[in-house]
Design a protein around this nucleic acid. Sequence first.
DNA 1: ATAATAAATGACACCGTGTCATTTGTCAAT
DNA 2: ATTGACAAATGACACGGTGTCATTTATTAT
Lengths: 203, 203
Amino acid sequence: MPKATFFNLPEKKRQSLIKAMEIEFSRVPLYEASIANIVKTAGISRGSFYQYFRDKEDAYYYILKEQASRRNKQFIQQLHTHQGDLFEAITAFYYDLLIELPDEKEYNFFRNALLNVTHQIETIFNEIIESNLKKDGMEEITKLINRDLLNIESDSELTHVIHIISAVAFRNFVEKFTKELSDQEAIESFIAEMNLLKKGIAK
Amino acid sequence: MPKATFFNLPEKKRQSLIKAMEIEFSRVPLYEASIANIVKTAGISRGSFYQYFRDKEDAYYYILKEQASRRNKQFIQQLHTHQGDLFEAITAFYYDLLIELPDEKEYNFFRNALLNVTHQIETIFNEIIESNLKKDGMEEITKLINRDLLNIESDSELTHVIHIISAVAFRNFVEKFTKELSDQEAIESFIAEMNLLKKGIAK
DNA sequence: ATAATAAATGACACCGTGTCATTTGTCAAT
DNA sequence: ATTGACAAATGACACGGTGTCATTTATTAT
């Protein structure tokens, strides 16, 4: 979490700092990102940066969580739109994500995150779907899901289902970037795997 | 890949260097590992290290691949033992992995890898199951799998099945470490998810 | 106007990586 | 045995990065 000082900043300055961070974190992955670049772009001193953030990671995860939170809202929206059909919702969400990403800066930001996924990054991505970003997130999601469509018998199974789906969705998303798949290929692969999950793998 | 110089090293020296790297990479994750520590432990000069490896990552992935290759052999062994039953084999493999890991150094090595999974690390882990470590790896695996037990209609579906299973297995393995689950909990969660994969998630 | 508190600053200490000119070792050919 | 050519070893060093801190500057309250 950024320090209080960061939130006390005048809106304009805070936005310009956020922008500078987004630029740097889009350029290279976390471990190569340099604070020197950020403060130069934002036009502040090095010391100031450390008034706002504990360290580089603090800043990075702040930006990443902002992104994730926006995406999480989209996913919940899709769940509403598709009347709690988990598969429909995640497919629509995945589709949106790919089609909507042509903004180069955002694209590279994700790319850098995904090529260098730490556990923490993966956790945040999974929270887009699992909705743990805010308190009571998981409940919000499980309430929305229409269980009649699922082959499950308990709450615990529902949790596992969500885990499985977010694991597979995430992995597909990573592969889109690492194997440089076209949108078309990525979506086909995603749908194929979702269908396998639906129908079951064993005879 | 390490440079030729590394493989020209007398066995004893090479082993002691490998051991020094294992110690350091067990202590902390890749990005915190220090070459100064490695060369001190191994009793060689800093310059020598760079005669053997292009850089720190080169060294790290060499060690990681060695580990993965050993695990891959175990998985293939399990496929044999269970007559090509993919689910039986992966469950036995997972079980072995957890039960067998109490060697503290190896445990920490995995832990550091899994808490800081880059795409490359995940790829190598998945190759344990997908057997791409050596050429023709994928074929070796697909031949071994008994397709009669699976609800699939094509080679392409089999590939997706393997992807899905390795994604879910990997994710379970990561959670074992990050959520500090007991062996018991980890295995229960793993089996629950494998069962869901088997029977299918949709009604 | 003054005191008190908050924010901004940049020089600096520290540590790490990868390089390179130089030294040392090895081994085949004469 | 000597030479020369190639391979390996070395550690000082250049460079660049992070996070700190004493000091200055701004803001707010009294």
